[in-house]
Computed example of a mutant assay.
Amino acid sequence: MKAAPKGNAISVNGTYDVTPEGTAFRLFSLKAGSNTITDNAPPVDQNPQGEQVRNFSGTISELNHDPRGTINGVVLGSKTLVSLPPAAVEQLAGYLKIGAQISGTGIKRPVPSGVVTSKNVDVTDARTLSVSGQTYLVN
């Protein structure tokens, strides 16, 4: 944003990639005046982090949907996205309502170096889910 303030002319170089989620633009470089910004691959992490098991609990504030409109998770208090596999969503659909209290355990999904997320939330892949006093194993 510093290299090209609002209203300045820029030149963008890249390609369009077709993905299962739709067409995406892959940026190679951006030129603004005499400044050129290039997109380099993030460095390979030589010491990848191990899985971080964490507990979560809260009130469902939002249902998360995949590009086809199918529920694939719930957002708790707009801070944690709990990702759920299709079989768990199908089995627990009656309980996954906005305002419902849930808790459980899961694996925190790390954000890869160089990646910017569209929502500032922690993503957790659920392993157990407790709803209405009943605990379910989620696989």
Rank of each mutant, 00 (worst) to 15 (best):
S130P: 03
I107G: 02
D39F: 00
T23F: 12
G69P: 09
G7C: 03
T124F: 01
D122Y: 08
G106I: 01
Y16I: 13
P85Y: 01
L30D: 10
A41D: 04
L30N: 05
S132M: 12
K31V: 14
P86R: 05
G33I: 01
P42Q: 02
S57G: 09
I98T: 15
A3F: 15
T135N: 08
S83A: 11
V18F: 10
S118V: 13
E21D: 15
E21C: 06
K6S: 12
E21F: 11
A87I: 11
Q101Y: 09
S103E: 08
I37M: 11
L27N: 04
R127I: 12
N13A: 15
I60K: 03
I98W: 07
N8M: 12
A88M: 02
R109V: 09
G58M: 04
Q91T: 08
H65W: 10
T38L: 14
I102G: 00
P85G: 03
N72H: 12
N8K: 13
N64W: 10
Q134C: 07
A9D: 13
T124L: 03
Q101F: 08
P112I: 01
A126K: 02
K2V: 09
G50R: 04
G69I: 14
L30F: 10
K6P: 08
N35D: 12
S34Y: 13
P48T: 01
V18M: 12
F25Q: 09
K108E: 14
F28G: 14
K119W: 15
V131P: 04
L63A: 00
